[in-house]
Amino acid sequence: MSATTAAPVWTKMRPKQGALSRLFDWKPFLAFVCLLPAVGLLMTFLTYPLGLGIWLAFTDTTIGREGIWVGLENFIWLMDDPIFWSAVFFSVFYTGVATIGKFALGLWLALLLNQHVPFKSMLRAIILLPWIVPTVLSAIAFWWIYDPQFSIISYLFVDVLGWRDQNIDFINTAWPARWSLIAANIWRGIPFVAITLLAGLQTIPPSLYEAALLDGASGWQRFRYITFPMLLPILAIVMTFSIIFTFTDFQLVYAITRGGPVNSTHLLATLAFQRGIQGGQLGEGAAIAVSMIPFLVFATLFSYYGLARRKWQQGEGND
């Protein structure tokens, strides 16, 4: 039965590669090809607009007229502009106060959600709501909440509770408007902080808390000596992101106050938009936008050093 048919010829030799195949086996070329899509996208949508913005900041371009190089003139002009300085002040103030608020409340919420509470997963989903609603929608909601005539808060205090006899002025005077915007920003920012910190909290092994319990640590001491230091690395990342997002915020302010009343609530981003697009002074608007860069570089450096792996996280080598 064993009619021996010729076995297929098989040699160990690999077939000779074609030129194209050899080219793709050449590491530098392969790396270049693989990077191309990402680099292309970054160049088109990040580097080019950024470069164009910086270039415009040094010209006197307006809409419809190509400008000429004017050097630092736009910046010198801004130095003497009280509205620019008011926007710088409010950007810093807005970022500072909102960040503190978001982190205080977000951390508190994360700690609460890390406990055994009933309906935990439902609560977590509810907490994410402010974050998944489009900003403009929530801004419009806040616009109504802050409305001089139809505000639900005013309604509550005046008509329901009777604690006040006139409506609250939320956004028609400088300081109340600033605080109102900060409150809206905090409301919107809490979920991001709470959920990311909650993720961080859940990486802390429960046995550390048990060890601390046996070591005699009170609730506050467990937070102070275990939770906080172990949360610090993730806290630094989240805070850096939060600072960058808040400092460059545009939507909330633009939708609720448009920088008013009397320019008192302009952030650098809204002022740049107003001057550059609505006012047509592209050069000046670009200069305002460019002046945000030092603040953002500072925030990034903060993250770089804040994120630098601490000694206790590193593996080996003590000396």
Binding site: E210, A211, L213, L214, I226, W312
Partner: peptide, 21 residues
Amino acid sequence: VPPKDRDIAMVFQNYALYPHM
């Protein structure tokens, strides 16, 4: 009696050393 007042010390399976100390 809470754990800290029982005058006991415990060694955990994963040691539970505080990594940042």
